[in-house]
Each structure stands twice: as structure tokens, then as C-alpha cells.
Nucleic acid binder design. Structure first.
Lengths: 179, 179
DNA sequence: CGACACGCTGTGCAACTTGTCCACCCAAGG
DNA sequence: CCTTGGGTGGACAAGTTGCACAGCGTGTCG
């Protein structure tokens, strides 16, 4: 990760469909450079995919709510997670700190429909209790890019390749040199 | 939204880089069809973008936490939201039901570093109190696709064009036979 | 019933982009 | 000094896109 990487991510986040060639033109670098950077970002796991972003709202699910689930002592999280995964309205779920708790993001067609979704979610004997909060407005839309920028300047900007090993033992490199 | 749309989204979610032509081949439809479907999905707002997905973990922020913030009565959410937006470690923030509350997803470089992030977030006089839970494991990774499928069968699958009135008259199929 | 509009199909073309390879140059490290 | 790694600029074939065309079947409407 260096400055060029972040600029690249910036550009592709703003205009994902431009393609490698166009990106290289805009950034004033060679096409091969953009290509190799992109490959490396993917290989490093920084870019996890290029899947389309879908809007639950546009799909008819404008209501978002956060559920906190209390899991019965002794019950595995796994089974609850499996149960949650089967409910399409559950967009995301985590285990969290606390007494066997889980957290889930769900969506619904309306406030009334939310009841149906909650009932679906709670239909698991391992769930002891739950609390629901409804999301009213998305004040900060989901984003990661600022973090990428911060990861540079912020914490010293680890070079993409750990190319500065303090004590590199001379590995008798290639006793039989090429040609 | 019909079955083809969902299949299309499915395909592009699994392999985003295949392109329109390859997708049309796999689905056994004409290229123009895929193209127009994709255009419409974007126009309808179902597909909100094709930006790369970034991994906070790979960027060096493996710790995720959820903050619940209590906002001082009378203080606008807006100013708090602006404040949160300036902290790169805040990936997302919503206003939620409850007494002037907000909810934020933050990441940090480590549990120790989380303290720094929390301090950053709480550096706003409008925030009265806060509670933090740390996300331990992502039991259900973020997804929307199952919802798209559910939006079809689940609630009657609103046809893209209201083209199916109950009384379909017998269409006198092909009065003038071919050849 | 007939006319019409719409969407999907299959085809063709020119222009562009991608994937890949090359030689060359430069800076850093041993 | 040599070696290594990364960036540049150029080239190539192959693939893809954007756009246009006509035909056809179905649902809508007069």
C-alpha cells in the first residue's frame, strides 16, 4: 500500500467501470503499473471483490433494524448462526462481547413487516432474549476508503513489500549464477 | 426484478469480472438482454455500484467494534454525524430509535488501539455517554443476494412491468401459420 | 378482432480494451 | 560492482463493448 494504491482505489471507487487503461491515463502511469497494482491489491486481500452493491431499499426493504440476541448458556453460536443465515432478511450477524450475545442486521418491508422478520429470527430455542433498535437514518454511509488513506499516513504507511529486513543473513545466493 | 435479474446478480456476485458477453453465454440469453437488464437494475437503484470491496482487516484493522452513542438532548445529530464522518475508523453510522441515540461501526488496529479510536469518536461535547461492544466473529458475512431472491417468491415478486392482469384472453396463437 | 408497443433474439461491424510479452531504465541493497 | 524489483513504453493477438438492424411473440388497448 502506497499513495498510488490509494489513489487507484479512490478512482475505482468513484468510477468502477472505467477499466485499467482509462485509469492509467487518468493517473498518468503506465497501464502495466495499474494492472500489477490491482493484481497485488487483490492478492493481498485488500480488494476482496468487485461484486455489485445491492440496495435493500430498492429491493423493497426500506426498514433496517439491529437485533441484539442473548444466547442461552451452553448453546453453541454455530447453530444460531446457521439459523440466521437461513433468513434472507438477515444481512449480517456477528458474535459480540457480552454474555453469549450476538448481533444481527436485518431489513424488512415495513415496520409492520419487521415483526414477521423478528419472529423468524427468534424462532430458535437457543435464543433467550432479544432487543431491537430501528435504524432511522444512515448518517455515515458504509465506507472503507478513508481508512485506506489513514492506513498510510496514520501509522507510518507500511511499505507494500517488507523490503527492509534489519538483519538479512547472506543466503549464499545462487552459488551457480545464471549464465 | 424477475428470475433472470436475480440469476444475473447471482452470477455477477460470484464472478464480477466476467463481462456482459460471457454472462449472456452462461445464462443462455442474448447479449443485449443482459445489457439492458443490467442497465435497468442500475437505473432502478437495485445495483448501486461496482466499487471494489475493501477489507479493513487487510488494511491492518482487524478489530471491529460497535459503539452506541447517547446524544445530549437538544444537540443535533448532524453535528455528531459530521464529527463521526471525519474519523476514518468509523465505517458506518446510523441514528437509531431510543433517546437521541446513534450507532457506529468502528475498526481499530488492535484492542489497545480501539481505545484511541473510541477517544477520537467521543471527542464531541454532544455525546453524553457511550457503550462499546467488540465484534468477535463474523457469523453471517454481509450479503444482500438472498434478499433479492426472497423479494421475488417471498412477497409476490413485483414484476418489473405490471404486465400480468388476471384475465389473460386466449391469444389465438398464430392465426396465420408459418409457411 | 386488429393495431400497437415492448422486450428478447440473432446478427454484423468498427472501435476499443485486455492479457501478455519484450527491452530498457532507475533506485536500493548486498 | 552486480543483482533485484519496480516502472515505462511499445507491440501483438484476442476478446469485448457499443450500436444498429430486422424478426417474432406476447400483453395492452382501441
Amino acid at each position: 500500500m502506497d499513495d498510488l494504491d490509494v489513489t487507484l482505489l479512490d478512482l475505482f471507487t468513484a468510477e468502477p467501470r472505467i477499466g485499467v487503461l482509462e485509469a492509467s491515463r487518468r493517473l498518468g502511469v503506465a497501464r502495466g503499473t495499474v494492472q500489477s497494482r490491482l493484481d497485488r491489491l487483490a492478492a493481498d486481500g485488500v480488494v476482496t471483490g468487485w461484486a455489485p452493491h445491492l440496495s435493500p431499499e430498492a429491493l423493497g426493504y426500506p426498514v433496517t433494524a439491529f437485533l441484539t440476541l442473548e444466547i442461552r448458556q451452553g448453546a453453541g453460536h454455530e447453530s444460531v448462526a446457521d439459523h440466521l443465515a437461513e433468513v434472507p432478511e438477515v444481512l449480517e450477524a456477528h458474535t459480540i462481547t457480552g454474555a453469549g450475545d450476538m448481533w444481527a442486521r436485518v431489513v424488512a418491508r415495513s415496520n409492520a413487516d419487521l415483526q414477521r422478520v423478528i419472529d423468524l429470527v427468534l424462532d430458535d430455542p437457543a435464543i433467550v432474549r432479544s432487543s431491537t433498535v430501528i435504524a432511522l437514518a444512515e448518517q455515515v454511509p458504509h465506507r472503507v476508503l478513508p481508512l485506506a488513506r489513514a492506513s498510510l499516513s496514520g501509522a507510518g504507511g507500511r511499505p507494500r513489500r517488507p523490503r527492509r529486513p534489519p538483519a538479512a543473513p547472506p543466503p549464499t545466493r545462487r552459488p551457480a549464477g545464471p549464465a
